[in-house]
């Protein structure tokens, strides 16, 4: 499943770095504790989190993640999307719940 396919399947909006939306998602995780994600994050991962602060971008960029999905109708502020755009980190926002995004990832074949 690609990032673009995920965005479509969860009725989401790609907020940043659409040039990287063709990436294939290799794995997924949902967690809101940054050092937990830092410990377990991987390249090509899709990360589902309700955190919307700028540190999310740093963690995703350091791990070269495929995308960050912000569920539950949350919205990151402008400085966060600017930073993500600069770093090439794809941020997707959606009204779907974190649980439902994870179900979609599973159905899409992400193990």
């Amino acid at each position: 499943m690609t990032v673009e396919e995920l965005a479509l399947a969860v009725g989401g909006e790609i907020l940043t770095a659409p040039e990287n939306a063709g990436r294939t998602i290799g794995s997924a995780m949902t967690c809101d504790l940054l050092s937990w994600v830092m410990a377990r994050g991987k390249a090509d991962m899709a990360w589902v989190t309700v955190q919307t602060n700028i540190n999310v971008v740093a963690v995703a960029a350091l791990h070269d993640m495929a995308c960050v999905v912000i569920p539950e109708g949350m919205r990151p502020d402008a400085p966060v999307t600017e930073k993500a755009a600069e770093e090439g980190v794809v941020l997707i926002r959606t009204d779907a719940s974190a649980y439902s995004v994870c179900c979609t990832l599973h159905t899409g074949g992400v193990a």
Binding site: L33, L34, S35, W36, A39, T49, Q51, N55, V56
Partner: peptide
């Protein structure tokens, strides 16, 4: 903000 799990030094 998502910090404070007490995982940083162990990581």
């Amino acid at each position: 903000m998502g910090f404070g799990a007490g995982m940083g030094l162990p990581n």
